[in-house]
Design a protein around this nucleic acid. Structure first.
Lengths: 204, 204
DNA sequence: CGCATCTTTGCGTGCCACGCAGGTTTTGGT
DNA sequence: ACCAAAACCTGCGTGGCACGCAAAGATGCG
């Protein structure tokens, strides 16, 4: 049932999460009160905690939503496709930049990234981001189990694959944030997944 | 300089972390106040926050200390040893059970594990645990870079390897906690690392 | 239209993280 | 052995956060 009710909830949730991110990136984590976020989203402070258990969770919500899409995308890949090809395609489709990124003014891009760096340096945020990744990994493990004929409840394999994919995604994004003149995230992701599937042989 | 000062600090830190874990496992996360932990460790409540920024951090401290040892152990491996053999040895030495586990009464083992499960279900804890793993991964990446002649500041490779090792460790421990009659953690770790180094090929 | 259900909101409570300042212990140099 | 500097512990106070509860409002369904 996609009634008015659910649509409104999703909108409020997105508005809160987006406001939390925007305010934190521009102002800094502890210069933003929950009250500010709620007000920016046009909702009462008490309602904030009906949607999120903490300020950090609100900020990590976009990351969570994005990461969750990987499992869905994997289920949408053709059945004959090899596992790692399907995973690569799924990861790319989930991480593709949406329209709201394309339409952002590119001149503000640099200070946005700088703000992001500061924001992600916050300990409380790091934990919540990683937790979001872990939740997404659990769902991905389910999808991997379906595709490989393994059992998510009893076998290690699907969880291991999901965790490895999460590790690749994490390493790629952190590399992106660390580098001064970084490659696009898409390329980094491809490289990371390819090395994973090759067994991470040492260079030389 | 290993003076009285540092030894005492380390002892207080360990006492606080241990008290936090013990109380939480037996009583539940939010039935334990910071005040209780401080008191159990023979220190004032205010002092607690001189050692840890949060209750969750105190509980995760043991995990952090353990995880950090992997990087050190890797540096201690002979230079000629292949990378993945050295990593496996390092992981095993860091995860070997200490004497305080051996001497614990085995009849209380089951309710301890049950308490652990409940504790690790707490969202705030999960984030902090994962964060501890991430810190350890950063240090492991340094050690991997040294060993492979790569550069942790510019190359993706060492971070990718470290993240993959972390993923394997995480998947193995979660599998251990999930299963009713689990294999020993050491075996699970070996299996996970072996599959990683083999490129995680799909079964059959 | 009208009842059942879900949401929002205001209020109140207990806990937590941390700045600050004063007293105490450890350290290293003489 | 003494003394000054540095590090540490502690009590107090403050601002903020998460959440239980109950009343008011919005929505869905017959």
């Amino acid at each position: 049932m996609s009634g008015l009710r659910e649509r409104k909830k999703a909108e409020t949730r997105a508005a809160l999460s987006w406001a939390a991110i925007r305010l934190t990136v521009t102002r800094g984590y502890d210069a933003v009160l929950v009250e500010d976020i709620a007000h920016a989203a046009g909702v009462s402070p008490r309602t904030f905690n009906n949607y999120f258990a903490s300020k950090a969770e609100a900020i990590a919500a976009r990351h969570l939503d994005r990461s969750r899409r990987v499992a869905d995308a994997l289920r949408g890949r053709p059945a004959g496709e090899p596992l790692w090809a399907a995973i690569e395609a799924a990861v790319h489709s989930a991480w593709a930049p949406g329209p709201e990124v394309e339409q952002a003014p590119p001149d503000a891009h640099d200070e946005w990234v700088a703000g992001l760096r500061v924001m992600l340096a916050e300990p409380a945020l790091q934990g919540e981001m990683l937790r979001a990744g872990a939740v997404a990994e659990a769902e991905l493990a389910e999808a991997v189990a379906e595709r490989t004929g393994t059992d998510a409840a009893h076998d290690l394999y699907p969880h291991l694959v999901a965790a490895a994919v999460g590790a690749a995604a994490g390493a790629a994004t952190r590399h992106f944030l660390r580098a001064e003149r970084p490659e696009p995230v898409g390329q980094l992701l491809s490289a990371a997944l390819a090395q994973l599937a090759a067994g991470l042989p040492p260079p030389n």
